[in-house]
Amino acid sequence: MEVLIRDDEPPSDYGVNPWERPIEQLLKCGIINLDKPPGPTSHEVVAWIKKILNINRAGHAGTLERSP
């Protein structure tokens, strides 16, 4: 995407390139592009992921539709 510039400032030591973030931080704020197996619900899969990764907060953004 094209960019419009308002101002610039020199680089600083704050922050970190997202791809160099420690794993611990990714577990607290990361995304998995998961191929959901067809049987279980999204909710169940999220529960398994939380268990596998040993984290207490996770969600999904992909409800297709409720199965009949």
Partner: peptide
């Protein structure tokens, strides 16, 4: 989405 990343759900849903 793990942890705080759940906050971007609307960006993907929309």
């Amino acid at each position: 989405m793990l942890g705080k990343a759940t906050k971007i759900v609307q960006a993907i849903q929309k």
